[in-house]
Design a protein around this nucleic acid. Structure first.
Lengths: 130, 130
DNA sequence: TGCGCTCCTTCCAGTCACTGGAAGGGTTGC
DNA sequence: GCAACCCTTCCAGTGACTGGAAGGAGCGCA
């Protein structure tokens, strides 16, 4: 199967697949004319990658996840720890964004939002923050 | 005041200030020896930028906010709209992250996390997602 | 006057995970 | 024989910095 087909079947864009080859995440064969040839195992791998990326795992995490997936002697604790670390990073981000959100809501609620130039948002940005 | 001092007083790193000059957000004077010289107005501007960035506004947003701030004839509605757009982008991000979070929590809860190799996390990544 | 210390300058490269586009060659079907 | 579509590589850009190298400027002290 060549790149167009595996892209369709895995849902991973061809550009991204080439990039993944570049950084060593997949290693397709080549035909004599230089086209990449993918096996079923590559499809499986790409789908795995796609799902991990959708869960927000970094490329480095994905590399480790694949390594663990292919290591028959792995301890599930190691996978779990990786996932837990990722989870806490996500929770941190959520908390940051929620802080931003509440400051924003706060600031916006003070602004009339009409044709006049007085604007509490700009004043809050200009002056000291609460 | 030179870059070290304004950096300390505004809380914006010197590197970042140089970058802001590069992209035209501030335009300090220069002494004959090439050192940047900042006025009180620059300090004000940098503090404004720092606060806007802390609220997650993009550089492009910041550019617009400053333009509006300095435009005496602005309508506060325009500022409000900019802020509201930013707010909805943030809320979208929060929602995305919360989706990730719940999928992750879900996946993690199925994994024993012990010395054995069976791992529900890897299985979920390998197989079809729920 | 020389020395060390800190501050300043510019420029280049790297981050992260792609994505867009150009230029060119291969394959397929009519 | 040619159009339509697939594939290739390579380069550049994204956002907002950040790190580091190489070198000049200023200042206090012996």
């Amino acid at each position: 199967m060549n790149i167009g087909e595996i892209s369709k079947r895995s849902g991973v864009p061809a550009k991204t697949i080439r990039y993944y080859e570049d950084i060593g995440l997949i290693k397709p064969e080549r035909t004599p004319n230089g086209y990449r040839v993918f096996a079923e195992a590559d499809l499986h791998r790409l789908s795995f990658l796609g799902r991990a990326r959708k869960l927000g795992f970094s490329i480095e995490d994905c590399r480790n996840l694949i390594r663990l997936y292919e290591d028959e002697t792995r301890a599930s604790a190691e996978v779990r720890e990786l996932a837990m670390n990722h989870l806490s990073r996500i929770e941190e981000k959520i908390a940051q964004l929620q802080n931003m959100r509440s400051s924003l809501v706060d600031v916006i609620s003070d602004c009339a939002g009409d044709h006049r130039p007085d604007c509490a948002i700009l004043e809050r940005l200009a002056g000291p923050m609460t």
